[in-house]
Amino acid sequence: MMIENPEDVLVDAAGQRHAPFAGDARIVSLVPSLTELVCDLGLAPSLVGRTGFCVHPREVLKGVTKVGGTKDVNLERLRALEATHVIVNIDENRKECVEEIARWVPHVIVTHPCMPEDNLAVYRLFGALFGRQAEAAGLVAGLEAALADARATGACLPPEKVLYLIWREPWMSVARSTYISATLATVGWETWPAGDEPRYPAFEWDAPWLAGVERVFLSSEPYRFQARHVAEVAALAGRPAVLIDGEMASWYGSRAVEGLRYLSHLRRQLAGFAPGPQ
């Protein structure tokens, strides 16, 4: 059995090698799902800044300073927080903003989960950086179990081609290159259209590829699809349509564990092999 090199755990998605931090960390997270992970690792007391989209866990974050959004960070406010570490993501944060932050913040941690399995490395990285190895190990075990269950669910049911809606006017879906698509694929849902680019394609309801779609999902984010939209979409698509919790399909970090369990249950439920929502 190959033994993991402890030093490899400390390399982030940009290839930067970090060192365990021995002092009192002052963390700013510019990634909503990873703000939740920071808290779940027991690091909430070290969290000094977040974006306005960082909403979980709500009670814990009420007293944490907001520094703007993921794309429009208030750099002056962030700088005043004297952070030792800033957590960013390749897809969610602007490269030029991250480069500016790196000019005065000692440690910028770059992340880029592209599929649920990638969260394992993020857990281990954060755990090793901030002395939370035990908590990280618990998340690793939880995710590995959730992944095994999700894959078993996908293996025992026929693959299903789905359209995952994220926006209305224009109607928009997700490409195969997205984290959302990879997460849905774990339980046997194949997203359409079939390409990798653009990552969030707009489409019209007369597109030829829609003929192969078997089910439509209406996500709760970023557009807040609601029950009143289901009948409209079902009529347009001529296919079954159902609401889906967007956080469970698109948030990585610690939410990925609950997300995979949710999707496994929903997959079985829609196939007639599980009871309704718990």
Rank of each mutant, 00 (worst) to 15 (best):
V105T: 07
Y200G: 08
V122Q: 03
K66G: 15
V105C: 08
E169F: 12
E96W: 15
L47S: 04
R124D: 09
E4K: 14
A19Y: 13
A182R: 15
T70E: 15
Y262V: 08
S173Q: 02
L30Y: 01
A83S: 03
R168E: 11
L184I: 09
W167V: 04
G23E: 12
D40T: 10
A249N: 08
V28E: 03
A237Y: 07
A237T: 09
A13R: 04
L81K: 02
M115A: 14
W192F: 12
E7F: 14
V242P: 12
S29N: 01
W189G: 07
R94D: 15
W189T: 05
A19S: 13
S46R: 09
A231R: 11
A150M: 06
V257H: 03
K161G: 12
R224T: 14
P57F: 09
P57I: 09
L75C: 02
D149V: 12
V242N: 14
P113I: 00
Y164T: 09
Y164N: 05
M115C: 15
Y252F: 08
A211Q: 09
N89L: 03
A249I: 15
N74E: 10
V98Y: 06
G52D: 08
L270T: 04
D245P: 01
S250T: 05
P170V: 00
P116Y: 05
R261L: 11
H85M: 02
A22D: 08
A25K: 07
K71P: 09
A146K: 07
I180N: 06
N119S: 06
L147V: 09
E144Q: 10
W104R: 00
V55S: 13
V174S: 08
S250G: 05
I101Y: 00
F126P: 08
S177A: 06
E190A: 08
V242Q: 15
D245R: 05
H85R: 03
G131Y: 00
A211G: 10
V105N: 08
W167D: 08
V257F: 03
I166Q: 04
G259K: 00
E100S: 09
A121N: 11
A146Y: 10
L61Y: 01
S181R: 00
G188N: 03
H56C: 08
